[in-house]
Design a protein around this nucleic acid. Sequence first.
DNA 1: TAACAAAGTTAACGGTGATAACATCAAAGG
DNA 2: CCTTTGATGTTATCACCGTTAACTTTGTTA
Lengths: 204, 204
Amino acid sequence: MSRPAYHHGDLPQQALQQALDTLRAESDTAISLRAIAKHIGVSAPALYRHFADRESLLAELAITGFMLLRDRLRDRLRQVDQADSRHALLHIGLAYISFAEDEPNLYRLMFGGRILPKGAHPRLDEAGLEAFRVLEDTVARGQSVGYLKPLPLPLMTATAWSMVHGLSELTIDGHLPGADIEPTLAESVLTLLLDGSRNEQQNQ
Amino acid sequence: MSRPAYHHGDLPQQALQQALDTLRAESDTAISLRAIAKHIGVSAPALYRHFADRESLLAELAITGFMLLRDRLRDRLRQVDQADSRHALLHIGLAYISFAEDEPNLYRLMFGGRILPKGAHPRLDEAGLEAFRVLEDTVARGQSVGYLKPLPLPLMTATAWSMVHGLSELTIDGHLPGADIEPTLAESVLTLLLDGSRNEQQNQ
DNA sequence: TAACAAAGTTAACGGTGATAACATCAAAGG
DNA sequence: CCTTTGATGTTATCACCGTTAACTTTGTTA
């Protein structure tokens, strides 16, 4: 009753879901259009009706990744006392890193340079920006409250982002031995950065 | 005179060089054993006498990448006043980032999680450690001189590495717009981190 | 000089992304 | 109501890929 031979109806969605599953279980290089097609019971060229090529499918996957990340950050902020900038910044950083830890392959797809040059997939760029803005807003709030140094916002945000991104990638690639640091490496590193970014004239 | 049909003699070296060339010109996914073999005038299976598989060749490439990075960091330290910890730390960071900018594809191969799990290629792990130690030593010196906070060395090093790694990757992937920041984004970000890591009890 | 190990060869397998040419179906218009 | 048409599938095929098996050539060593 729900399986018309042609006009499958749900092909793009199912294809993306299947791609996401194999991305999680294996890696992005393990994603094959033929395997996806076979798995959802369709011929391989059918996918080309919905995705220009393999990379476009990966880009679509990365887009959902950025939306998940954005939601993860927003959710965490909602659970946290917004008035306490230090707390908010620490927790958005921890939420960011936990996303990367939960979805290492997806995270690498989003950032690892696997998808061709910035600008090739406008919707992807927009999705990335949306996630970025959550971080930027939190930094801006920290500045307006007087907790963070009044340096240029792009500089402060780039610093914060570089830190959480670097920590995330080194962690998921296993380059950082030290889970033996108290309380957690991520928390300690973020604390160190936060203390250095504090505005000492006007303390919170 | 120098081309015996068999026993080419220099095959592994030339193969790696050719792979490095295409890595620089294209990307790691563009590296094909068949293309390499054809380019150096040999049959494809000949490569398997010298590399277990494609990934082993990529691992070899990453090893040379880590050696280049290590040398780049050491060279920069040699040009800098070692007594001035702040200067040394700033410059090792800048050297690190400039390496990533000069060799974006090689850098991504070294870190992007393209080579399977940590531990699969012992010589690669060792090469990575050697580069890491240059950074670690510089941080340790900064602490022993009293310039950096006396926090656990692994924590301080992880912080520094996360920062330069994050900044490098976001830069080469074009995620950071701001080359419009003075003097350079990298220098500003590193300065911010360094100021936060300074030991305020005992100033230099 | 015979034997052996190292380093190359060709042939072939299964898998990949992609395109062209053809088939089917759903929906819209006369 | 039937036809037309465009979207969405299909099969056949191409050129490439990594990898293995079986064989050949070469340099070295006994």
